Amino acid sequence: MDDPDTPSVTLRFYEELNDFLPAHKRKRSYRRPLFLSPTVKDVIEAEGVPHGEVDLILVNGASVAFGHRLRDGDRVAVYPMFEALDISPLLRLRPRPLRVPRFILDVHLGKLARRLRMLGFDTLYRNDFGDHEIVEIAAREHRIILTRDIGLLKHGAVTHGYWLRSTRAARQVEEVLERFDLHRLVDPFARCTVCNGEVRGVEKDTILHHLHPGTARTFDVFYQCNDCGKVYWEGAHYDDMCASLSRWLEAPVKGE
């Protein structure tokens, strides 16, 4: 901005919020022209950052809500969600962090949904969910929206959401585990990968009618989904699934 007499605010976005900015605005303070008296939420989203990923805003060093109106000369610092850090002395922009994370995914994330369920996380997914339906369910059931659609996270009713940076499902799993500090909460194979229901151990005799004769002869330990009735056992794919679990849980994500 060339004219120093033009009303403006100084913005600075922190950590992964920089992913939404063009390169010349990342990890630095910069001036933005100010017209009328916009809310800080309006300015943040005009910069391309969805409010669902923001958890703390400081204006001139004081924490403010999304509805705070900006004035010429204000300095605005914007921070991402602090799911793993208690910032209760400051003004959070949502009622509370989701200490027991529950997710809802958009229609493009079916592979990620199956993997998160395999890790034991409550994960809603349907390939016919509409955006408004996702937002309504997330608000009603206190779920975190995971999406590749930045526009979805700009919906006014969204409180908890995350834009996945990667397009690869395996990498997305690592990204979610790191972003929400979930490694210690993993409970492998506790949920049905098909319907998200809880899986429990079951007596072999009660599910024989579901099994092929070869499976019944070879295996003795079985599990069943409480909701859809799908039966699981430690078959040929079990070792591959365990290997995937080990890779995802080895270390925090350091980059793409």
Rank of each mutant, 00 (worst) to 15 (best):
S8E: 15
T10D: 06
L11I: 08
R12P: 06
R12F: 12
F13M: 08
F13N: 09
P22D: 15
H24A: 13
K25G: 04
R32F: 13
P33E: 15
T39P: 07
T39G: 05
V40A: 11
D42Q: 13
I44C: 13
E45M: 08
D55A: 13
I57F: 05
I57W: 07
V59C: 15
A62F: 08
A62W: 08
S63K: 03
A65P: 07
F66E: 12
H68P: 07
R69Q: 13
R69A: 06
R71H: 14
R71N: 04
R71I: 09
D72E: 11
G73R: 10
G73F: 10
D74K: 14
D74M: 09
M81H: 07
M81S: 10
M81G: 07
F82S: 15
F82E: 10
F82P: 12
E83Y: 12
E83C: 04
A84W: 06
A84H: 14
D86C: 05
P89W: 12
L90H: 15
L90A: 15
L90K: 14
L91S: 12
R94M: 07
R99Q: 05
V100E: 14
P101G: 06
I104G: 07
L105H: 03
H108Y: 01
K111C: 04
K111H: 11
A113D: 11
D122R: 03
T123L: 07
D128T: 08
D128G: 03
G130Q: 14
G130K: 15
D131E: 10
H132V: 05
V135H: 13
I137R: 15
A138I: 13
E141N: 12
E141L: 13
H142W: 03
H142C: 06
H142E: 15
R148N: 01
I150C: 03
I150M: 03
G151K: 03
K154S: 11
H155D: 14
G156I: 08
A157K: 13
V158N: 02
L164S: 04
S166L: 01
A170G: 01
V173A: 01
V173D: 00
E174D: 05
E174L: 03
V176A: 01
R179M: 05
F180G: 04
H183L: 05
R184L: 01
V186N: 11
V186Q: 09
F189M: 06
V194W: 02
C195R: 03
E198F: 00
V199H: 05
V199I: 13
R200G: 09
G201W: 06
E203F: 01
E203A: 09
K204T: 08
K204V: 04
I207W: 08
H209A: 05
G214P: 01
T218P: 00
F219S: 00
D220K: 02
D220A: 02
F222G: 05
F222I: 05
Y223G: 02
Y223C: 03
Q224R: 09
V231E: 04
G235Q: 06
H237T: 04
H237L: 05
Y238Q: 02
S244K: 07
L245Q: 04
S246R: 09
W248H: 02
E250Q: 10
P252R: 07
V253K: 04
K254C: 08
